[in-house]
Every structure is written in C-alpha cells, then in structure tokens.
Design a protein around this nucleic acid. Sequence first.
DNA 1: AGGCTGACATCGC
DNA 2: CGCGATGCCAGCC
Length: 126
Amino acid sequence: MPPRKNSSRLKQVLPSGTRDISFFEQVYEVVKLIPKGRVTSYGAIAFFLGARSSARMVGWAMNAAHGMPDVPAHRVVNRNGMLSGKMHFDTPTSMERLLKKEKVKIVNDQIVDFEKIFWDPAVELS
DNA sequence: AGGCTGACATCGC
DNA sequence: CGCGATGCCAGCC
C-alpha cells in the first residue's frame, strides 16, 4: 500500500503530446480492448507489448488510469486471477462489484474459472 | 541527480 | 517447494 494518501493524484490526465505513445498509452490501448466479462493479467499485457518483465509498469499504469472511464482497470489482475489491486479502487469492494456485474464470479478475491474467461491480447489481437 | 517504490512475474538457491 | 533477488519503467522524495 502506498505510504502517501493522496500523492498528487498523478495529474490524472496524461500530458499527451509530450509523452506520446509511451508504455502507458500502449497499456491503455490494450486494456480498453478487453471485452466485457473477460479478464487478463498484467504479465499478459506486458508480454504483448514486448516487455515481459515490465508487468510492474502495467500495474503502475493502472494506477494512473484511475478516473479514465474507458480503461477498465478492474479487468486486469495478476497471473493467478487474484484481485490484487482491489484496494486501489474507491472502495475495497468496487473492483469485485464491477466484475460481478459483468457476470464474473469471484470467491475470496479469486476469479472463478480464470483460465476460461482469460483474454490474452497476444492471441486475440494477433 | 540518485535512490526508493510499486495493482507483477520469473529465475535461482 | 518456499523465499529472496532481479528486471523493468515511471514518478516521487
């Protein structure tokens, strides 16, 4: 958990133009394409972008994606299908609630049948 | 300017 | 089989 409470909101809006097609932008592009009721992992996105070990950055991007309606950050979980980032939403339950609204079953912060609804950008966008 | 810190993943011991 | 170390990139102190 972040030591700081507010930490300047990360400007919320990316300085588009100056930042161009950064890793962030690419992550957003992919996340936007995740179909309803499907989920993917940080690592899958990172891999798709050609940087397998940049999965961390994907998580960081999600953090900055807060407030972007087009970016369904709740559809991105870790490779185990666990809602590792749920504490970063408005409320501890909003991530789970959003997913359940899309018919995604969750038990104990773990997505049921994760493999079945897993959406791999490297496959779907190939 | 340099170092620390992540909503992760993988490799090594 | 479990825990520690490492990579990666961007932002903050």
